[in-house]
Design a protein around this nucleic acid. Sequence first.
DNA 1: CGACGGCTTGATCCGAGTCAATCCTGGTGG
DNA 2: CCACCAGGATTGACTCGGATCAAGCCGTCG
Lengths: 227, 227
Amino acid sequence: MLNHHVATVAARTEAIFPPSAISERTLAGAFELRGAAIHFERNVEIYGEDEPAEYFYQVVSGAVRTYKVLSDGRRQIGAFHLPGDVFGLEAGAAHGFSAEAVTDSTIRVAKRSGMIALAARDSGIAAELWASTARSLRGAQEHMLLLGRKNAEERVASFLLAMAGPACPDQVIELPMSRQDIADYLGLTIETVSRTLTHLEAKSAIELPSSRRIVVKSRASLQRLNA
Amino acid sequence: MLNHHVATVAARTEAIFPPSAISERTLAGAFELRGAAIHFERNVEIYGEDEPAEYFYQVVSGAVRTYKVLSDGRRQIGAFHLPGDVFGLEAGAAHGFSAEAVTDSTIRVAKRSGMIALAARDSGIAAELWASTARSLRGAQEHMLLLGRKNAEERVASFLLAMAGPACPDQVIELPMSRQDIADYLGLTIETVSRTLTHLEAKSAIELPSSRRIVVKSRASLQRLNA
DNA sequence: CGACGGCTTGATCCGAGTCAATCCTGGTGG
DNA sequence: CCACCAGGATTGACTCGGATCAAGCCGTCG
């Protein structure tokens, strides 16, 4: 989802409440209290499609990709989850897609049954659970527009703007994911992603000091591509 | 979403409870009691993107499309909603996408604020609200895979199988939507949709007695295209 | 009966995919 | 500290699936 919003909520929660005063009255707080923090190494599976959904997850550090694959191996990444993001919120009994660590990541894990019981008692938690799912849905809607109707240049520009977050001149983006991940997220091939980045550099919209680092030189020209 | 599941829940609810005994303990029941049924004519907007989200909606009869458009008019339909389906469930204050009636439709409308208040009191309602949103998210995930990674023939086959619902030999599909709607749902052009249908007919997977009616002759050959 | 809108069909084009070399570059071991 | 190596990234040549442009067709409704 590339959602920075949840991250700030989590950070704020930690800032306001010293550890001993963390409350279960918020989703982030509930994760703090009930969740074990587990470390996953790069490219390790967190859960697989159709596995029973036993836990809910929150990224503490690192990055996670959620995706589906066709039987012949074609992969579509639905979202990247960054620190603070909650994922794996299944209402049904089984996961609808798989999740893997993009980089070495720390993930807080909370029992689904416990969280649901908590939500049944506390309507505030229930509301946050719902809101978080609705936020994911909104991201998915936006992404369907990209996948169904945008060309390669527009897709890459949208991705860069989402990764860049709030405006800031000469912003440096540190990409946690490979070109293959970006391609599978944008519904393109690595070659097209690479060519498009090179092309954007030629137009001096961005700079590419290294393959995992991108400098946004002209946010405006990226935005123009977003229609 | 082409979700037949919710439809059956609604139908069951009506079957079990005579009107006077309808309970607010279920989402469908809450819609029954609190929702006004409104008629929308073909192609009429139900709500627009970025409008304040004042209501939740449930299809009683007809069909609804939810979609986003780019500034130059390119349109992506995220889901079709059939009788029983709930849509427009926004956790935020504004709608993230637009909704229009595909055909003349009756829509039950319930005040968002009332429904949220009800969910705060009744955790069962809260759970259903969340489950309904999660179901939409799952549909969106599936659709991202289609839009990002399937070819034209696979897209059309997936669509036909989703519209056909549970197996049944020589099943006749009555399409409520135009070729343009199908194209905008599948991320294709009308020409490609039309050609692909003709091609599937040539392979005797389907028959096309009229443009809004499709007979599934070989579910197996459609499924083979689904990978 | 004619006209209009939605659908189909055909011809051609083009953007992204495929296939095939390189080219880094970051990590390793000497 | 430097040379080497492997895997990811870039670049190029060519192909191809679906878009575009352009007629017709057909069913419906006045």
